[in-house]
Amino acid sequence: MNIFRLTGDLSHLAAIIILLLKIWKTRSCAGISGKSQILFALVFTTRYLDLFSSFISLYNTVMKVIYIMCAYATVYLIYGKFKATYDGNHDTFRVEFLLIPVVLLAVLINHAFAPMEILWTFSIYLESVAILPQLFMISKTGEAETITTHYLFFLGLYRTLYLFNWIWRFYFEGFFDLIAVVAGLVQTILYCDFFYLYITKVLKGKKLSLPA
């Protein structure tokens, strides 16, 4: 455990909780892509199946359980409790365009051709692109609530910090996971445009709105 890994995990946790609180406090999931949230729930479910097969640490187990529970709670709030506020008309990204290539890639490029490994690899690849329905929704409506941008910032920051964590582990522990690093790079790059808007607009007190 190094500082990049820990702050990355906490940033991820912050993102998840910001989103849950935003929906809960405003009693609305307007502007939130339910599709992205379903994909994240799928990411956690397929990645954390090892909760049943191996124990790594109390920290590891607790964080995994929190992530999974929060992911399903978010999906429930969007498609259940606050369904009336869900903006399905703008959440029109075709997820099959992500899922099909990700499944194929996970079957073709993995550490071992075994069910658990393929599911883990699938989750890594899927996570890297799971935010696309959300970014697509923002580009379609041309704006995002400020709290939604904070959510996206922490979510993007998390994988960026993981990149530093992997550099650290490569140098100090001799660890290197090509699949995670490449997917993490892709994931971080997808946030770059958003980071730019966040820094130049949101941090200066302006709402995130895109030119028409």
């Binding site: 790594i56 964080m63 883990w120 995670a180 690093v181």
Partner: peptide, 10 residues
Amino acid sequence: PNGKKMKDEL
């Protein structure tokens, strides 16, 4: 290097 899976990460 093909690398190895970091099983302890989230």
